[in-house]
Amino acid sequence: MDAEITLRVDGADQPVTVDTRTTVLDALRERLGNTSPKKGCDHGQCGACTVLVDGRRVLSCLMLAVAADGAEVTTAAGLANGDLHPVQRAFIDHDGFQCGYCTPGQICSAVGVLEESDGELSRAEVAERMSGNLCRCGAYPGIVAAVEQAAGEQR
């Protein structure tokens, strides 16, 4: 069953026809040509599909596009607004990735973490809050260092 919806993706309104079964992730990747968020599991188990919806980090693979009609979706592509986002720069500085497949999700998640936290985060807290984003390449030390750097810059 098809439905007409509009997603506001990385600042631009995108009307799109979706199957009711289409997730926000598939709508972005297969219908809107935005392949920034990745599909690692399609079941909420890896975090690769993390995007910001209305400013909060969520898993786009478990969100039905019809249910997100009108939502403001930000992907890692949209975070880079001409210049890279400070979190993105920090990931490059600390080599917080290897293959890069988990990375757009890590970046969105990290932006969400910084948004959510009211005080300074310990190393362990950063690691815990970033644990919904698996990295099979094992870039965790770089990821934590990158989030800490970005948090420092934000303060």
Binding site: R29, T35, S36, P37, K38, K39, T75, A76, A77, L79, A80, L84, Q88, F91, I92, D93, D95, F97, G100, Y101, T103, P104, I107
Partner: peptide
């Protein structure tokens, strides 16, 4: 050196096989 493909990967612009 920083990775040459860094910017492509942190924005998700690097295209993998399915993409």
């Amino acid at each position: 050196l920083r990775r040459r493909d860094g910017a492509l990967k942190v924005t998700g612009a690097a295209r993998y096989a399915y993409e």
